[in-house]
């Protein structure tokens, strides 16, 4: 029996190790090694920190890196602020059938490809689009208005794309908050604001953290939305990675960029977890 169990254990362990080893761990080590080399001539490479030196001294690279980070944090914050009242409404105000319907309505847009969602925003906001026509019709504008290709448009798209991943964890944690606790808060003399601050938000913290982590990751790693909705000036870090790999074929620099993105996301995710005293396992598993 024991040896049979051992065999079963190794049979179950093998796919896991193959998957994580061959597709996650080794490729990332290889990526690190590639980013740490410099091309001397055809097929001859040297170990060097040149790629990182380039990435950290060239203003365009550095600015794009910082911009991507700041804009992703901003997108996360905006998503949280927009989603929280809605999640609260679904979890606490709506009852029965209405609650189920609203929750399902939140999920539907995300069964559709991100490409389709971005396409929808392009139809709405472009110069010949619906919003521009509406503005002219109501007299608020006297000529076609181009609403695409600005940072604000990109933000609208980013927030839209990741909304679900904020609403769902928030609804789940808020639902577990007992109504009587809120009532007790009011009975003890609290008002709407202090109940929100002292009771509701602390209770929703796990949902807030996991929602923020996922939304931040999705914004940081987004390629479609900045490319299609953002302007010439709103270059995103993922676009630079794509350019180095596919357009310029400069894999060394591209790998360095990839590694920087990975470090940035790990640091911020780890920071969020540390700040709230939670572990990855609790938050994601």
């Amino acid at each position: 029996m024991r040896s049979q169990s051992r065999i079963a254990f190794y049979l179950l362990l093998t796919p896991l190790v193959l998957w994580l080893g061959l597709l996650i761990v080794i490729p990332h080590i290889d990526m690190l090694l590639i980013s740490l080399r410099e091309r001397i001539s055809f097929g001859v490479y040297d170990r060097s920190l040149l790629q990182y030196e380039k990435a950290l001294t060239e203003p365009l690279y550095l600015r794009t890196f910082a911009r991507t980070a700041v804009m992703s944090i901003l997108a996360t914050a905006i998503t949280l602020i927009i989603a929280f009242p809605v999640a609260y409404y679904i979890a606490k105000m709506a009852k029965g059938r209405l609650q189920q319907v609203l929750f399902l309505l939140c999920l539907i847009p995300f069964y559709v490809s991100e490409l389709v969602r971005t396409f929808g925003w392009m139809i709405l906001l472009r110069e010949t689009g619906i919003v521009s026509n509406l503005l002219q019709w109501t007299g608020l504008a006297d000529q076609p208005v181009e609403l695409l290709y600005t940072d604000a448009t990109m933000m609208v798209g980013l927030v839209y794309t990741s909304m679900l991943f904020m609403v769902v964890p928030l609804v789940t944690t808020l639902e577990s908050l007992d109504d009587s606790v809120i009532e007790a808060g009011y009975d003890l003399g609290g008002n709407g604001f202090s109940v929100l601050r002292e009771i509701i938000i602390p209770h929703a913290m796990p949902g807030i953290v996991s929602g923020c982590i996922v939304v931040f990751m999705l914004s940081l790693g987004n390629y479609l939305t900045p490319t299609m909705l953002g302007g010439k000036d709103s270059l995103w870090f993922t676009e630079m990675i794509y350019n180095q790999f596919i357009v310029r074929s400069n894999w060394e620099l591209g790998a360095a960029f990839g590694f920087m993105l990975l470090v940035l996301s790990s640091v911020i995710v780890w920071g969020m977890l540390a700040l709230t005293g939670r572990t990855l396992k609790e938050t994601m598993g």
Partner: peptide
């Protein structure tokens, strides 16, 4: 789940 999709792509 916390590695950006594009980084997964280039590493592979």
């Amino acid at each position: 789940l916390v590695i950006p999709g594009i980084v997964l792509g280039i590493s592979i």
